[in-house]
Design a protein around this nucleic acid. Structure first.
Length: 273
DNA sequence: AAGTTCACCTGATGGC
DNA sequence: TGCCATCAGGTGAACT
């Protein structure tokens, strides 16, 4: 489910639990994404502390606790963080439940491509540095100039570069397709072949698409929901993603689907030469 | 080093 | 109804 707008939507909808004390927690399935196992002392590390703050870093949900531990959650492809009643009973694919006095949050992830980490507050910067997470797509530091410098010498298709979290953090398959369409850039274009003019339209197109989607609560294709269970409505505003063989909103040419870097890519062959 | 491909896992969908 | 193949909002290991 989750690209930047979907993660942002989940983070916002979790605001009500800020200040709450964790009364109990239970791990039902500790094995998530390969190499990511929830530690045995998970409950011991978080129980009785309070939720100090919840924010988004790249596609990660970062939950700061009062005892200087930080819970970092990645939703993978199919993950959800759901706000439930306090005595909610775990259903299939509910891997973790964290309880408060009057409510609880549930980490549900059928495909288990998600991940949960728990680290010390002081190691937060190092955590993302280690993962080599690039500048956030909504950051003021994400500029045409930055992108030009970072793409220099890269022959990979621009589609693939924009999906690379080390180059720019937050984009996923949907929003890359949408942003490239808005700029009339062919997704196969070699990254270092983009003109200065193209980069100058691309960066704002990316930011505007993401912001519009956040306003709509993200894109729900299947799994994405806010913590309250409400879907995102940006799906209705998608221009090319998932629209194979449907007319381009600009020129009526049929939208094509091709595979780039192993991922489905939707584009208009006429508008995106 | 940079560029590919593939595996990880479950569920939904469509063809036969 | 069932069986099989294909596909899915992501990531990173293992190849070339």
């Amino acid at each position: 489910m989750p690209e930047l707008p979907e993660v942002e939507t989940v983070v916002k909808s979790l605001e009500p639990i800020i200040g709450n004390q964790i009364t109990a927690s239970k791990v039902y399935q500790s094995q998530l994404r390969i190499g990511c196992k929830i530690p045995k002392d998970f409950s011991k590390l978080i129980n009785l502390s309070k939720i100090k703050d919840i924010k988004r870093i790249a596609k990660y949900i970062v939950i700061e606790l009062s005892n200087s531990e930080v819970l970092i959650i990645h939703l993978g492809m199919s993950g959800n963080l759901l706000l439930k009643e306090k005595d909610y009973k775990a259903k299939k694919h509910d891997h973790v439940i964290i309880s408060f006095k009057d409510s609880s949050i549930v980490f549900r992830d059928p495909r288990r491509f998600g991940a949960i980490f728990i680290i010390k507050n002081q190691n937060l910067d190092a955590f993302f540095k280690d993962k080599k997470i690039g500048i956030d797509a909504l950051s003021s530091k994400f500029t045409p100039k930055y992108l030009k410098a970072t793409l220099k010498g890269r022959k990979t298709p621009i589609k693939t570069s924009l999906l690379n979290q080390k180059i720019v953090a937050g984009l996923g398959n949907i929003y890359v397709c949408e942003a490239l369409f808005l700029c009339g850039i062919n997704p196969c274009t070699a990254s270092n072949d983009l003109t200065e003019k193209e980069l100058e339209t691309l960066v704002p197109a990316i930011k505007n698409t993401l912001k519009k989607s956040i306003k709509a609560g993200g894109t729900t294709l299947k799994d994405h929901k806010s913590a309250n269970g409400t879907p995102g409505y940006f799906s209705q505003e998608l221009l090319v993603y998932g629209k194979e063989n449907q007319p381009c909103p600009e020129c009526n040419t049929n939208i094509q689907k091709i595979i780039i870097g192993g991922r489905s890519t939707f584009f208009c062959p006429k508008c995106q030469k």
